[in-house]
Design a protein around this nucleic acid. Structure first.
Lengths: 342, 342
DNA sequence: TTCCGCTACTAGCACGTGCTAGGCGTGATG
DNA sequence: CATCACGCCTAGCACGTGCTAGTAGCGGAA
């Protein structure tokens, strides 16, 4: 029961009866080996269960072929972005190294570990860092940094974000077309990308000549189900009014779901009495029992864009960071409908 | 705008005016350096932004101090386990390397990457591998493997799982104590850990002298919201019956939520008309608009147990793998109550 | 003085891989 | 016949770190 050492190229070489260099050459698909030898080396590698030592490889290699990704497992839309990063990176010849940001494992710790692996670039998804935090990260890490989420174009790091303002505008347009005139916006004030989305609401309402009605919900972003709670609280506030709006919009699906369920539980029919809409098109919005009209910000496209931005900065040394805006699309489901006649 | 090379120990040594070895010694907290030198080396390391090259380190080091973790970002309870692994590993002096299992990145690929990093052990969470897959993984990887999820004790790999059968039994006990006599069990048949939980239901019902009523729902496990859909379909089937049961139990929260929402939408009051309970105590169960009675399988404890099992196998070479069963606890919320008088 | 032990440091090899520079044989070209 | 090109292979160094085996310097004991 001894712990055997994993096989190296030297072991393969000895097994086949050639030099170690030739094995390296074959496994790198470099020219200069006969087909017969290639076959024998590959067979031996498979037989011995060879797995290249990425540490040794990154040590020798001039430039790294790894993308470091920081993400928060607790947040909902991020897993989909992470999933999209894998094939995008693979298509460009890069490997992915993940590091989680949690309450016991800070963004800085995650970044330090990734830098220890000598990643070629860092992709930070939905980080808790503000602009100055990201800026200093970009400066000290010496590698290109891509922030996925929110922020404005700058010269320190790349940004990939969805067009949250235009998405909300489209949503309001949809409601206005259905005939809604009283559309309330519930704003969980602690939401990172919230300001942009609220602006979209304000702009669209103004364009339609309708009065804005914003319900601002304070709270702690880091709390477990803050968003859903904010929606629920907002629903109770609305229920205390003499008259309900005909439609309610929230800048994320969790808040909208909190609204929806609380309204339904209190005898309000959705969409008959009140239309409800969210943003993100999270899995929860697609449940048949929720079936929420929402705005989809394509997580796959965001992942691909992040990889593209990172690879571009890596391979064209010295180019300026840029901002990539991913278009959103309206997903109409059964939680919105024309308002009842009064 | 040239891409500078990250600083090495040799750079620090040159900066301070000592040998490279002494820098290594200081940064490893090994004895044999004066306090004054330690301070100067540490200051220089900080000033230059030194980050140790983990590749070089793992190359030289006899045994690795990394735990490789395979997880599926799309699944719901796993992020919480991953979060718990970080502090547990840190407490024992291990680093964590994550690799995701997605539709475009198989478990095998994820494992190969982790083995490339020369992890000391592998922790596989909620894998799609069956027993023989895990067995061959354990055999070819040459490192201890810990499977978190389900399975039976065996000599090839460790198992960490929750006591799903006892958890469901407790849940049925709770319902029986409330006075329920007609308790239906909805079984999404494709669920990996499903058999164990169903046995718990059957055992408890028998103990209480009640007839079992199992609604088996076929379907594809890998589909996006299969579980919630299964619950929704089951609700429709129940609604077609002449008489509803007074309580419904599901082996996971998604199915229970599908049940609950579909029943509510069709005018059935929960818990007044029907009590509904799930399993997992997933975030969705805790939403105030759902407030589902459930069985909590402590994800934190599962993460810690997985790390413990892995470290034990790593540090006591040759010990046999074992099975760790994490106790569950009943979480009573407002979706269950005493049945109405008939 | 010599020897010993201690502190503070350095020399040097090893880990597994990538890559450049060569070497050796064979067949084609001058 | 000498030279060259080419296909196939090997020698050897480098990457950044951990660790063992030293080696000076210095104070104290014999």
């Amino acid at each position: 029961m001894e712990a055997r050492r994993p096989p190296t190229m030297a072991d393969i070489a000895a097994h086949v009866g050639v030099s170690r260099q030739l094995v390296s050459l074959v496994l790198r698909d470099a020219p200069g080996a006969s087909d017969e030898t290639r076959r024998r080396v590959r067979d031996a590698a498979k037989e011995l269960g060879f797995s290249p030592h990425v540490g040794a490889r990154s040590l020798r290699r001039a430039r790294s072929k790894d993308l470091g990704v920081v993400f928060a497992p607790a947040h909902s839309t991020e897993p989909e972005i992470v999933e999209a990063i894998y094939p995008a990176a693979a298509a460009r010849g890069y490997d992915v190294i993940l590091s989680a940001q949690t309450s016991t494992h800070s963004t800085d710790q995650a970044v330090d570990e990734l830098l220890g692996h000598r990643c070629a670039a860092l992709i930070v998804i939905g980080s808790d860092l503000d602009h100055s935090g990201l800026r200093s990260l970009a400066e000290r890490s010496l590698v290109p940094v891509v922030d996925v989420g929110q922020g404005k174009r700058n010269q320190y790091y790349d940004i990939v974000r969805s067009s949250g303002d235009k998405g909300i505008e489209e949503l309001v347009d949809h409601l206005a077309e259905l005939g809604h005139r009283v559309v309330t916006y519930v704003d969980p004030s602690a939401m990172p990308a919230g300001a942009l989305r609220r602006r979209g609401y304000e702009r669209a309402m103004k364009r339609h000549g309708l009065p804005t009605d914003i319900l601002s919900m304070p709270g702690d972003y880091t709390a477990g189900n803050y968003f859903e709670e904010a929606g629920s609280t907002a629903a109770h506030q609305l229920l205390r009014r003499r008259k309900l709006p005909t439609a309610v919009v929230a800048p994320n699906d969790d808040t909208a779901v909190g609204l929806l369920h609380t309204l339904v539980r209190n005898g309000v029919r959705v969409p008959d009495d009140v239309s409800v809409a969210g943003f993100d098109d999270a899995p929860i919005a697609r449940l048949t029992s929720v079936d929420l009209t929402s705005v989809r910000q394509d997580p796959g496209l965001m992942g691909v864009s992040a990889v593209e931005a990172a690879v571009r900065r890596v391979e064209q040394g010295g180019v300026r960071p840029r901002e990539t805006v991913v278009e959103t699309s309206l997903v109409i489901r059964s939680s919105t409908a024309a308002p009842r006649r009064r």
